[in-house]
Design a protein around this nucleic acid. Sequence first.
DNA 1: TTTTAATATGACAAAAATGTCATCTAATTA
DNA 2: TAATTAGATGACATTTTTGTCATATTAAAA
Lengths: 71, 71
Amino acid sequence: MDKEQLKKKIGQRIVELRSQKGWSQSDLARATGKDRQAMEKLENGKVNPTLYTLLEISKALEVSLNQLVKF
Amino acid sequence: MDKEQLKKKIGQRIVELRSQKGWSQSDLARATGKDRQAMEKLENGKVNPTLYTLLEISKALEVSLNQLVKF
DNA sequence: TTTTAATATGACAAAAATGTCATCTAATTA
DNA sequence: TAATTAGATGACATTTTTGTCATATTAAAA
């Protein structure tokens, strides 16, 4: 798996978990203390997130870190 | 868990998995195509690695990504 | 003791993430 | 229709990671 594929994968996973909660990008942004655009970049595979960003997202989505990267 | 704690945790986890294989930092560096100093920074919690860096490390250590962040 | 291997540290440039702007489209709702 | 909500995009400054130097410390081996 190359970097671009990985970025897409984690983005899709975040969309999947957010959608399961019935949340909008704004809802997730609020829950993480970040802004909508930051969420959009993550979800659309525009960035290669750091571990800490992933931890923050996992907390907001109420899943464990290793569940978030389970793909 | 704050960012500093997380950096320490992932570093300890990498040391743990590398040690289980009986590898030196140089061995891991070679397996990842990076250099010794980069491994040292990771292991000693000096950096907040990106997801792609974690994937490369997990490959070198022959564990899955979600096993690497299982802590 | 001397040499070598392993680990650690500080400095640096280049690349990339983060966070925040404005703005745009599309879909939904009043 | 008009207003609102959701999502997407490009630009930008700031911060940080990444990758690579040189070098220092410690431990092990010859």
